[in-house]
């Protein structure tokens, strides 16, 4: 049996699993509003523990979405984090998709049938 047609394909609504994880989305959203932020600022705004934040940053760096620059400032370790151009684009696209889904969810409540087709997470 074929699936009912829908104005938007599943590809258009699919979500980026790497970015969609809440902590990583928070990190990338904060970073999208600045050129660079240090580790302390990211920890303050996201409320993540040091270990948690470190592991999320490592994953994002491995994916090429952020750059991490470690240095010493007055003998204290200092970590600066910035989005790469790809990361900036990916987080903007992700929020655009979430906004799209939010708009679609509104008529779905009135029985348009969109709720039958949950977004695919890549």
């Amino acid at each position: 049996m074929s699936e009912p047609s829908h104005p938007l394909s599943h590809d258009a609504l699919s979500l980026d699993r790497l970015i969609h994880e809440p902590a990583r989305l928070a990190i990338m959203t904060v970073l999208s509003s600045v050129q660079a932020a240090d580790f302390v600022f990211l920890q303050t705004t996201t409320g993540l523990t040091k270990g948690n934040l470190s592991s999320h940053l490592s994953r994002l760096e491995e994916a090429g979405l952020i750059t991490i620059e470690k240095s010493f400032v007055r003998r204290r370790p200092h970590t600066d984090v910035a989005l790469t151009p790809v990361g900036r684009q990916r987080v903007a696209d992700h929020w655009a998709r979430l906004d799209q889904l939010k708009q679609l969810a509104e008529p779905s409540a009135e029985g348009s049938g969109v709720a039958d087709h949950p977004p695919r997470v890549r």
Partner: peptide, 10 residues
């Protein structure tokens, strides 16, 4: 520095 950290604005 210790409570909030630092950012470089766009």
């Amino acid at each position: 520095r210790d409570r909030y950290g630092n950012v470089t604005p766009t």
